[in-house]
């Protein structure tokens, strides 16, 4: 028998989690404690569920993760459950929240200025976001930026930052540690840990913010960090590669991206050591 769901509002996104597995529910609830709410007051809440089965008394338990009743993933390994949940939530946000143009990017705010860091996985977005967050920047999102299609403002979706094993040491140098020093396994990406924004800073969350900067980071090991200006056409062209729900907007998506960059200053970034990269960014982006 499944227990009652628990509900969250993570920035602009409402979701609930239901599971017969107490430890999964408690773990997720602890990771997202600041975003817990009492009941479901939304008619567009994403419904996540984790079930488990065991084919025979001697068999290993198998976990099934569902998003809105559709299978997201299944695994026999407990450390894969949380990453599947996280991934499933992202997938359902893409499917359900067509009011936002969704760009594969981390997004933060400095003062009232929203900043998008758009890049492929493994480019150092989350690590950079953690570094800037530790310097007092405000957090909007990690995996993807939610851009209101009407206003072109960034909206928050402040999920825990997913730090990959290659960046553990860098993050530890900031005296930050993955939540409860727990490590998970994400398919294809190996070991990951989650960094709660509230563990990095006392008041980490940003309100919806106008986009003033668009940056395309690329981590190059040992590189001297370098910011170089991009024309708005270059930025719109590059940003198009990172739109995750272009099908929702069809022919409008190109014009929306143009509107996004019209209000922004755009840069390419070759990032190197985290502190030096953050120094460079702060020297160019006024508070």
């Amino acid at each position: 028998m499944h227990r009652n769901p628990i509900h969250f509002r993570i920035g602009a996104i409402d979701l609930s989690l239901r599971s017969e597995l107490d430890e999964v529910v408690q773990e997720f609830a602890a990771l997202y404690r600041p975003f817990r709410k009492d009941g479901n007051d939304s008619d567009n809440s994403i419904e996540m569920e984790v079930r488990s089965d065991r084919r025979a008394w001697y068999g290993r338990r198998r976990y099934h993760v569902f998003g809105d009743d559709r299978t997201i993933g299944r695994s026999r390994r407990r450390p894969e459950v949380m990453p599947y949940l996280e991934w499933g939530i992202n997938r359902q946000v893409i499917a359900r929240h067509g009011e936002f143009l969704q760009v594969h990017a981390a997004s933060l705010a400095r003062g009232n200025a929203g900043v998008i860091f758009a890049a492929n996985s493994g480019s150092g977005k989350s690590t950079l976001a953690a570094g800037l967050l530790s310097r007092g920047w405000k957090y909007l999102s990690d995996e993807f930026a939610l851009i209101d299609a009407e206003t072109q403002w960034l909206h928050p979706f402040p999920k825990a930052l997913c730090i990959k094993s290659g960046a553990f040491k860098v993050v530890e140098q900031l005296n930050l540690h993955p939540w409860q020093r727990r490590y998970y396994v994400k398919a294809f990406k190996g070991r990951v840990g989650y960094l709660r924004p509230h563990d990095v800073s006392d008041q980490p969350l940003a309100s919806p913010s106008p986009i003033r900067f668009v940056i395309f980071p690329k981590y190059i090991e040992g590189a001297h960090p370098r910011l170089f200006p991009l024309s708005r056409a270059q930025a719109a062209f590059s940003l198009a590669k990172y739109v995750m729900n272009s099908g929702t907007f069809g022919n409008r998506s190109a014009s929306l991206l143009a509107d996004v960059v019209r209000q922004a200053v755009c840069f390419g970034l070759e990032s190197g050591p985290l502190e030096a990269t953050c120094d460079l960014i702060e020297s160019v982006l006024p508070e």
Binding site: S231, R232, Q234, A236, F237, N251, A254, S255, A258, V261
Partner: peptide, 24 residues
């Protein structure tokens, strides 16, 4: 073709295949 002029440059969007192009 959907074109968006940006500071004298532009992006072109082809609705048939979803490709985006950049023009200096």
């Amino acid at each position: 073709i959907i074109e968006n002029e940006l500071d004298g440059e532009a992006t072109l969007f082809d609705p048939h295949n979803g490709n985006t192009y950049q023009l200096n």
